[in-house]
Design a binder for these strands. Structure first.
Length: 751
DNA sequence: AGCACGCCGACT
DNA sequence: GTCGGCGTGCTC
């Protein structure tokens, strides 16, 4: 019988048959597949010159061809190795420090390097099948010739081109209608040369906003800037926390620090938690950096593959000075990165929740370390871990303690709801305050961190609620769509007329979401212009921006919304902020719930009184004595930190301990549970220096039809944790593919 | 992840 | 008797 492998054209010819007598160059390649380790390949003699670390290669992998990135080239025995097929880049696509950074990142997060590389590269560069269309265009350039062409049109076009230098066909066509024949003739006469070049799609063509004036920094801002400038001049890794109360002018510090970085000939990276929320920030950057050599690029999920590819290439060529983007922008290939700004560094949006669960802020610190850059972590409510680092001196501490122009922080009062029965979602105090604000024709903002009409539908007779068949949660009732929906898997069903359990006919929406609050307000204030901002109303492109503009123009009196309304907006007209359900986030089964609640309340309170008129804030709560509420009401970050840090210390939670969460999921509940128990028992055997907690069902014990158990690893130091992961790996290798084990290093939440 | 292999049910 | 379901193993 014939050898099947030998019949496969991919196989036999590429395999190195006999061991070479001489040591041959071997490439270590990170293949873009979830493999545990890089693979080694022999290098065909013809490709030896082109191979260097950082170039992409096509390699045989089993029966198929795969893309990989060369990590190292070394000499050794190449017997039994397969030959790599193709080298795709003439220059390293990933410069050494970027590649280095990604290798460190993969190790830290215990994630396969190939997958890390796939995450870091734009779609067009990370696959051999999906090629982005590389658009080319014709560029015409006058040759050094003084001959005068015969035709009038030819003379006109040539004169224009001699004036301008090189121009593309599109640009010429914009000046001279139907120029093709003329150009063709001029080329034939050798008065023009033509070349094909990669066309750059420029998604940044929008007209720049008017230039803004650079304000004189306040004393606080000046102090912060001096420290930044000093570190820049020394070209050293310098992490700093910029702790500035809401409205204190953190952005101005970013702008001036970046300006100094560009002055050094280096580039800047600005990370924002969610790019859709920050057109205002982008506009400020565009207004400040207007020179031809200060191009600003924005990376976000709305870019097409082609646009992303173009942006990536332009950044790598050094044509872009400032990149603004969401978490994945941390991988932007800026060649000489001098500063990374992480705006609102406490935001959970920096953490990738699926697949490779990286945290962009933490990666920013890692990357800056590799390229000796300054990192500014900016926040009014720093993460406990970030503030703790500043306390211990691991990062510098810069503080902006005053609002700009001496504007006061708003006055905050807590409305105690305990023991009270409200007729709707709003307490009379809040209704009254809204009425006053309307009478004064001032704007109000209401935070209710819950979408839909009601968080569940309840049977009055037997107390049954409606649950998602795929997830372990109740279905949210939407009056607008007349349906029940799951917020995790988007399962939808019609609300039944009768309770399926007892046949009862009184099924009532229980509790209130933003949709119901909007209805309640419309009834209470018939003349008011009310709008709602949550994931449901901002799904449509431009809807979010429309609401922001409505607020800026004063076309909205009351804006209701989820935490989306708390983030980063500067609405000078808002003088009243109401918080309808401050307790919901406190009851999350998670050690960070107080930290998150404090941050949310402080951020939303910070939306009040940013203009000329002072603001006030009313917070409805059932837990008025909780430190997250009392401290937020007093704008007292430090007091909150002191209380919270004591609790963290007692329990060994971050920043005093490090966590890794292992989540095992699968379709068969019994199998998941028993395997989780097995893993925990095995880890217990080798857990020196690590606490192994669990297994326990996740807070979301079922999600999209899969049962989930977690094992939490906790340790005072990282090395023993990473040692334990070696045991996890060994165990995982034996796991059937029907089960999935996710490793979450530094988990942000444990749902 | 792909892609093959191999072992079981329900079809012509 | 085959077609095809997905569990399992391997990829230099």
């Amino acid at each position: 019988m014939a050898d099947r492998a030998a019949m496969n054209p991919l196989d036999a010819p590429t395999r190195v048959g006999e061991p070479s007598p001489e040591p041959a160059p071997i490439a270590t390649v990170a293949v873009l597949a979830p493999l545990e380790k890089p693979l080694s390949y022999a290098i065909p003699p013809l490709l030896r010159e082109q191979i260097q670390p950082g170039v992409r290669v096509v390699v045989p992998l089993g029966r198929r061809r795969a893309l990989g990135v060369v990590l190292e080239v070394a000499c050794g025995k190449d017997d039994g190795l397969r030959l790599l097929d193709e080298v795709l880049d003439a220059q390293p696509l990933l410069p050494p420090d970027l590649l280095n950074f990604l290798r460190r990142a993969a190790a830290y997060y215990h994630h396969p390097l190939g997958e890390v590389l796939r995450t870091a590269l734009p779609a067009g560069l990370s696959s051999i099948t999906t090629r982005v269309a590389i658009l080319t265009e014709r560029l015409y350039r006058p040759t050094p010739s003084s001959v005068v062409p015969p035709g009038t049109r030819q003379r006109e076009v040539l004169a224009w081109l001699r004036e301008r230098g090189e121009a593309s066909l599109a640009e010429i066509a914009a000046q001279f209608p139907a120029p093709h024949a003329v150009l063709k003739r001029l080329v034939e006469l050798e008065m023009l040369s033509v070349r094909e070049a990669e066309r750059r799609r420029d998604p940044f063509f929008a007209a720049p906003p008017p230039a803004d004036a650079r304000p004189t920094p306040s004393a606080d801002q000046q102090r912060a800037l001096e420290l930044v400038l000093e570190s820049l001049a020394a070209r050293r890794f310098a992490p700093m926390l910029l702790h500035g109360v809401t409205g204190s002018g953190k952005t101005e510090v970013y702008l001036q620090a970046i300006s100094a970085t560009l002055g050094q000939g280096r580039q800047a990276l600005v990370l924002v938690p969610e790019i859709a929320l920050t057109p205002q920030l982008v506009a400020r950057f565009r207004a400040r950096f207007r020179d031809a050599d200060q191009r600003v690029a924005v990376l976000h999920s709305g870019l097409s593959d082609g646009e992303r590819y173009d942006a990536w290439r332009a950044i790598a060529r050094g044509e872009i000075s400032i990149v603004i983007g969401a978490r994945s922008a941390i991988f932007a290939p800026l060649p000489d990165l001098g500063i990374i700004v992480v705006d609102e560094e406490h935001e959970a949006g920096y953490k990738q929740g699926e697949g490779w669960r990286y945290h962009a802020r933490d990666l920013a610190l890692l990357r800056a370390q590799r390229c000796a850059a300054v990192v500014i972590l900016g926040s009014a409510t720093p993460a406990m871990t970030s503030f703790h680092r500043a306390r211990t001196g691991a990062t510098a501490y810069l503080s902006l303690s005053e609002r700009i122009l001496g504007r006061p922080l708003p006055e905050v009062s807590l409305v105690d709801l305990s023991g009270r029965r409200l007729s709707g979602a709003l307490a009379p105090e809040l209704v009254e305050a809204l009425a006053e604000n309307l009478a004064r024709r001032e704007q109000s903002l209401l935070l209710l961190n819950r979408r839909g009409f009601a968080p569940f539908l309840l049977c009055r007779e037997c107390g049954a609620t409606f649950r998602c068949p795929n997830c372990e949660i109740t279905l949210t009732y939407y009056q607008s769509h007349r349906h029940l929906r799951c917020h995790y898997c988007d399962y939808v069903q019609r609300p039944p007329q009768q309770c399926p359990d007892c046949g009862g006919t009184s099924l009532d929406p229980e509790g209130a979401g933003t949709e119901r609050l909007e209805e309640e307000l419309a009834a209470a204030f018939p003349g008011a212009r009310i709008a709602r901002m949550d994931r449901d109303t901002t799904r449509r492109k431009g809807a979010h921006q429309g609401l922001i503009e409505g607020m800026e123009l004063g076309a909205i009196d009351i804006l209701i919304g989820t935490q989306m309304v708390a983030k980063g907006h500067d609405f000078p007209g808002v003088t009243l902020v109401g918080v309808v359900g401050a307790d919901a986030s406190l009851n999350f089964p998670d050690f960070r719930s107080a930290e998150r609640t404090f941050a949310l309340l402080t951020q939303v309170a910070g939306r009040a009184g940013r203009g000329e008129r002072p603001g006030r804030v009313l917070i409805q709560t059932y837990a008025p004595a909780h430190h997250a509420l009392t401290c937020a009401a007093r704008h007292d970050y430090l007091a909150f930190y002191e209380q919270e840090i004591a609790f963290r210390r007692d329990l060994g939670y971050p920043p005093f301990g490090h966590l890794i969460n292992l989540v095992l999921s699968g379709n068969q509940p019994a199998q998941v549970e028993s395997r989780a128990a097995e893993l925990a028992a095995e880890l217990d055997q080798v857990s020196a220096g690590v606490e192994v907690l669990g297994p326990a069902p996740c807070a979301l014990a079922r999600l999209r039809g899969r049962t989930r158990f977690q094992i939490l690893l906790k340790a005072a130091a990282r090395p023993p944790l990473h040692r334990l992961l070696a045991a996890v790996d060994a165990w995982r290798r034996k796991l059937p593919r029907t089960l999935n084990l996710a490793i979450d290093v530094d988990p942000l939440d444990m749902l």
